[in-house]
């Protein structure tokens, strides 16, 4: 492989792990504009799962992607594609995986788009049919085995639940798509698939229901199979439930009161739930009082919106309209406010 022109050339053929370390320091543009084209070995390093993860960990500015229908922010950067118009006139829907955002607009039946807010670039996913059917909550997930992103479409025709289908398309490879069998699902699970939004934990898309709260419907995008997992029946059936992705696992927040909740974690492969913590901010209630809006008739409570750092820092929002959020360290039980 090496040229024989002088023996010095050999020392520059750095071993795999040293090339890995060097490339890790390169910015994204140089990786894709140059390093990828150098040779097969380098491209192999760059495509490796370890490299992708390590590079992302080093270069991503830590940010929080809040998927909420009235609020879309990543770190302090407001994403440009969502204005008031979206909220009022359009049926715009979002899903996210590994920091990428899948966005689609049911009103205009436009194509799905994938945005990488980190580098502010966007890609259009070709429509699965020329005549777009009515989409439910689509999802995006990452298949580690094939290193591909998958878009999961849930749709029906003429808003008829019996025509419900689930189709997986692989992003950027070709236009092939596969149906996932939904025949074996219980009516409740089908209802969940039909009605509810999704949460992605890397290779798995989950459909949950904050109200009925009996099962998590999980789709493994690698095996393309659905599994129904029961949800732990916590303290209070009337309290709100929230599901958040930690990236690698699914967490459930089971609130017992407006400022108290139990946190559970689900193992993705087995669907096993483990109770992780209790978050009790009842004692801090008086500190939060000035975020309460007088005219609002909804109960004043805290809702979890995302993990800033899993198992450590959680971000919560108030149920009343305010741009302030609470960052809560579950280990030290310290909290701080920040404004979106």
């Amino acid at each position: 492989m090496q040229k024989k022109e002088d023996f010095n050339i050999n020392y520059r053929a750095l071993p795999y792990d040293l090339v890995f370390d060097v490339l890790l320091h390169l910015p994204e543009e140089d990786i894709y504009d140059n390093a990828m084209l150098v040779c097969r070995r380098w491209s192999h390093i760059i495509r490796s799962r370890d490299f992708v993860n390590a590079h992302r960990a080093r270069h991503s500015t830590p940010g929080l992607l809040i998927l909420d229908y009235s609020l879309h922010q990543k770190g302090k950067k407001t994403l440009g594609f969502c204005g008031n118009e979206t909220r009022q006139n359009r049926d715009c829907r979002f899903a996210s995986c590994n920091g990428l955002i899948l966005e689609y607009d049911n009103f205009s039946k436009r194509a799905h788009k994938i945005t990488n807010p980190e580098i502010n670039q966007r890609f259009v996913v070709p429509p699965i049919y020329p005549q777009m059917p009515y989409h439910r909550f689509s999802s995006i997930a990452y298949s580690a085995a094939s290193m591909e992103y998958k878009v999961v479409y849930i749709y029906d025709r003429d808003e008829d639940a019996s025509t419900l289908r689930c189709v997986i398309a692989t992003v950027g490879v070709d236009n092939s798509r596969r149906d996932v069998c939904t025949q074996h699902l219980s009516p409740e699970a089908k209802g969940q698939l039909y009605r509810n939004k999704t949460t992605t934990t890397e290779g798995f898309a989950h459909w949950t229901d904050a109200k009925t709260h009996t099962l998590v419907l999980t789709l493994n995008v690698e095996t393309e199979t659905f599994t129904q997992y029961p949800v732990p029946q916590g303290q209070d059936n009337y309290g709100d439930k929230y599901y958040l992705s930690t990236g690698k696992s699914l967490t459930l927040f089971d609130s017992g009161s407006n400022f108290f909740m139990e946190v559970w974690e689900m193992k993705l492969e087995t669907g096993e739930w483990t109770k992780m913590y209790k978050i009790d901010l009842e004692a801090q209630k008086c500190n939060f009082e000035h975020f309460r809006s007088k005219g609002c008739s909804f109960p004043f409570a805290l809702k979890p919106v995302g993990w800033l750092k899993y198992r450590e820092v959680l971000v919560l929002r108030f149920s009343h309209m305010t741009r302030f959020c609470v960052a809560y360290n579950v280990l030290t039980k310290e909290f701080d406010y920040f404004k979106l």
Partner: peptide, 27 residues
């Protein structure tokens, strides 16, 4: 040193990188 090498490599052409690292294009 890895960081420094990466810094030197930034904005350089593919040809430059191959030459400096003594890599032959095997594509």
């Amino acid at each position: 040193v890895s960081a420094k090498i990466a810094q030197v490599m930034e904005k350089k052409s593919v040809g430059w990188v191959r030459r400096k690292f003594g890599i032959e294009n095997d594509y």
